[in-house]
């Protein structure tokens, strides 16, 4: 034990600590990325092909599609929907596993890294993970000719923001669970899927019955979809854009603070 260099162990600076948590999650992901990368990139590409090009060939450009081909109308929304789906998965099972089955967060809690830093690290990890798969999707969509302008870079940022607006509160919630009853299945079945189907990804929300619309307005996905199309097509109105950003930003901030609280409660018992 005497040969190695002298220890310089210390509590890392807060941002470094957050980054180290990301590094730890990446160490696992690097060995196990294939299946989840496939589903988070290939799946939206298949949707784009089947619905955008296939089904879309039957749809005339109209006011509802902003005068665009259906596939061009769909692509900026699909990146948001797919980002939310990926983030929802990353915010549920892996988080509970890190507390309960693998107990890796319990292990980190004995190091100088604090519970709040673990929470922020987990969130940052999801954001990076979503950013990478959304970029991959958009590159493929561009190659396929579904992207109309460089405004799509804005769509990428919006996709990450929307994904985090959804994931942050879910991460917080996952940290409170003792077992996987049916909670995660319920989140997917009753929140993620209906949101994807009805919150403006595939058709404008004003096609929905009046009484359903308010339900759609409180979903992060609707705000994200609106923003993403505004960015991609350059059709944004300042006030609407600010409103969407504020809504999504507030969810991220509140969700993150809530996650810090639930992580701390879980780890400091």
């Amino acid at each position: 034990m005497s040969t190695a260099t002298k220890s310089t162990a210390h509590a890392p600076a807060p941002l470094t600590a957050v980054w180290l948590v990301v590094e730890g999650l990446w160490a696992w992901y690097r060995r196990n990325w294939r299946s989840s990368a496939v589903s988070s990139v290939l799946e939206p590409v298949l949707f784009l092909l089947a619905l955008g090009f296939g089904f879309g060939s039957q749809i005339q450009p109209s006011a509802a599609t902003g005068g665009l081909d259906y596939v061009a109308y769909l692509a900026p929304a699909l990146v948001v929907a797919s980002a939310v789906q990926t983030s929802a998965f990353e915010a549920t099972y892996p988080v509970l596993a890190a507390f309960k089955w693998k107990r890796t967060f319990i292990g980190i809690a004995s190091t100088p890294v604090a519970p709040a830093q673990i929470a922020y690290g987990q969130l940052l990890w999801i954001a990076l993970r979503v950013a990478v798969s959304s970029t991959a999707f958009l590159v493929i969509a561009t190659v396929l000719g579904a992207v109309t302008s460089v405004g799509v870079v804005g769509s990428l940022l919006v996709a990450v923001l929307t994904a985090m607006a959804f994931a942050a509160p879910v991460v917080a919630y996952s940290a409170t669970l003792e077992t996987e009853g049916q909670q995660f299945t319920a989140i997917f079945r009753f929140v993620v899927v209906p949101m994807t189907v009805f919150a403006g990804t595939f058709f404008p929300v004003d096609q929905l019955p009046v009484w359903v619309r308010p339900l759609v307005w409180v979903t992060p996905m609707w705000h994200g979809t609106e923003l993403s199309r505004a960015a991609a097509f350059g059709t944004g109105e300042l006030l609407a854009v600010l409103g969407h950003l504020l809504f999504l930003g507030a969810l991220v901030v509140l969700g993150a603070r809530f996650a810090v609280r639930t992580f701390t409660r879980r780890l400091e018992v």
């Binding site: 180290l20 590094e23 107990r103």
Partner: peptide
């Protein structure tokens, strides 16, 4: 700290467990 219940990352290698954990102590 050696806790009563192990919390190793079973899906990493033995060596990776040491690498990842050590980094939390601000070590290069």
């Amino acid at each position: 700290v050696v806790p009563q219940q192990d919390n190793l990352d079973n899906e990493l290698t033995v060596r990776q467990n040491l690498h990842v954990y050590g980094r939390y102590f601000g070590l290069s």
